[in-house]
C-alpha cells in the first residue's frame, strides 16, 4: 500500500521546532474557524489576525525543521500523520463558544509569551531570531485575551457562567503546558516559567471574578502523539488537498 505520509527523524532541534510549530498551527486553525462567525465584526478580524500571526510562526518553525529534515513547510504540515503531531492537547480542542476560545487563548498566551521572551536569549540563533519576532505578536495576543477574560468574567451572569465553565473544562489541560519538550540547552523548560504564569493568571482571574479551578486530574499525551479524538478530524479537513494531490501548488 502506498502512503502520502512522511516520517521525521526528530533531533532535539527538530522536535522543539515541530512541537512549537504544531501548537501554533493547530491553534491558528482553531481560531481561523471563527472567521465569519465571531460575535462581532471587530472580533472576527481580531481572531483572524491572531490566527495569521500563529500560522506565520508555524511557517518559520517548519522551515527551520525542514532545513534539518529535507522537507518543506507544506510537507511537514500536511503530510505527517496524527500520531506524528506534537502539539498540546489544549490547542486541538474544538473552538467551543467565544468564552472557551478566549480563555484557551489566554491560558496558552500567558505561557507562550513568556517562553518566546526567554527564547530570545536562546543559544540557537535561528530560534532566537524567530522568538524576537514572535514575542511581539504573543504580547498582543496575551493582552487581547486577558482583557476579554476580564470582561467576560466580570460581565453579565451569562458571560461569567460561560467563562467559568470554559476555565473548568480547560484546566485539566494546563499542566501539559509546562512539560519539557526537549532537554537541550537551547530550549527553555516551560516549568521554570510556571511561577510567573500562576501569578499572572491568578491576577487576571481575580479581576475577572473567576475562580481558579482545582485540578483533580491532568490530561497529557500531545507531545508524544497521543491526541484527543478531535485532532484527527481537524487534520483530515486541513490535509485533504495535499493528501489527494501531493505537492499541489496554486
Amino acid at each position: 500500500m502506498t502512503t502520502t505520509s512522511i516520517v521525521i527523524v526528530e533531533t532535539p532541534l527538530v522536535r522543539l521546532a515541530l512541537a512549537r510549530a504544531d501548537d501554533a498551527l493547530i491553534l491558528g486553525h482553531r481560531l481561523s474557524e471563527w472567521c465569519g462567525h465571531a460575535p462581532m465584526l471587530e472580533e472576527d478580524l481580531a481572531l483572524a489576525n491572531i490566527a495569521l500571526d500563529l500560522i506565520g510562526q508555524a511557517r518559520t518553525l517548519y522551515t527551520l525543521a525542514g532545513e534539518a529534515t529535507g522537507h518543506d513547510e507544506d510537507e511537514l504540515a500536511y503530510r505527517r500523520d496524527e500520531r506524528a503531531y506534537r502539539n498540546l492537547l489544549l490547542v486541538e480542542l474544538p473552538k467551543g463558544d467565544f468564552a472557551f476560545s478566549i480563555v484557551r487563548q489566554f491560558l496558552y498566551s500567558a505561557l507562550i509569551d513568556a517562553w518566546w521572551r526567554a527564547m530570545t536569549e536562546s543559544a540557537e540563533p535561528r530560534l532566537a531570531a524567530i522568538a524576537a519576532k514572535a514575542e511581539k505578536e504573543s504580547a498582543y495576543h496575551l493582552r487581547h485575551a486577558a482583557e476579554w477574560v476580564i470582561r467576560l468574567g466580570d460581565g453579565t451572569p451569562e458571560s461569567h457562567a460561560r467563562a467559568q465553565a470554559a476555565l473548568d473544562r480547560l484546566w485539566p489541560y494546563v499542566d501539559e503546558l509546562f512539560e519539557s519538550v526537549t532537554d537541550a540547552a537551547f530550549d527553555v523548560p516551560p516549568a521554570c516559567l510556571r511561577a510567573d504564569w500562576d501569578i499572572q493568571v491568578d491576577s487576571v482571574l481575580s479581576t475577572a471574578t473567576l475562580t481558579r479551578p482545582t485540578a483533580h486530574w491532568s490530561q497529557t499525551g500531545g507531545r508524544s502523539g497521543k491526541h484527543t479524538e478531535h485532532l484527527g478530524h481537524l487534520l483530515s479537513e486541513m490535509q485533504y488537498l495535499q493528501r489527494v494531490h501531493p505537492g499541489a501548488t496554486w
Binding site: M40, E42, A46, N49, R143, H144, E147, R151
Partner: peptide
Amino acid sequence: IHAADSTLALQAARDVYTR
C-alpha cells in the same frame, strides 16, 4: 468600531484599522 469600553475600543481599532 463598536466596543464596550475604551480599552477594548483601542484593541478593536488596532485590529480593524492597522492591519
